[in-house]
């Protein structure tokens, strides 16, 4: 794969990279750091990608690993003041988008991650299994649980 093709594929995945990193790291500066590291890592490990059509899944997995490391370095306790998404919406509470955003952001990460990957990014259960390195049954149970938690939150 040439640098040009690699760049083209990265740019095609840009929205996905932004949404996934933001769902995990929750602030722009950390997302920019993470995506830069992920791109460099992916380019370095390009030989490990066996088929070009799996590029997006493969790149997402690298990004998630980078984000996890960043979370680890952050000490895992997120200061809510740093969080761009606060618990108190600044728009009327009947705005469904904001309610859903808050509900999603308040999910435990392991549920939020699979919800974002499945419903927003459109990855299949099998893809998610490979991205996160967890069994398929775990993906499904986390999706089920995540949906249930979102529903409870939005109905409250």
């Amino acid at each position: 794969m040439t640098k040009e093709t690699f760049s083209k594929l990265v740019l095609e995945s840009e929205q996905t990279l932004y949404r996934i990193s933001m769902s995990m790291l929750k602030n722009e500066a950390d997302c920019e750091d993470a995506v830069q590291t992920a791109i460099l890592t992916a380019y370095e490990k390009l030989s490990s990608l066996k088929k070009e059509e799996y590029f997006r899944t493969w790149l997402v997995r690298i990004l998630i690993n980078v984000c996890n490391k960043q979370l680890g370095r952050r000490g895992k306790i997120i200061n809510l003041d740093d969080n761009e998404y606060t618990a108190e919406p600044s728009v009327p509470s009947h705005d469904k988008n904001v309610e859903l955003k808050i509900a999603l952001e308040n999910l435990p990460q392991k549920f939020r991650q699979v919800i974002v990957l499945f419903y927003i990014e459109g990855f299949s259960v099998t893809n998610i299994k490979n991205i996160l390195g967890i069994p398929e049954g775990t993906v499904k149970s986390r999706l089920s649980k995540g949906r249930s938690l979102l529903k409870s939150s939005l109905e409250a």
Binding site: V10, Q15, Q36, L40, S47, L104, I120
Partner: peptide, 30 residues
Amino acid sequence: MLNNVYPEVPESFHNAVISTLDSLEAEKPV
């Protein structure tokens, strides 16, 4: 609705992607 939860890619993020891609050394096709 879920797609609208996260806004469009902000310019700073896009610039970070572009600058990283520009910094890559061209290599032989893999």
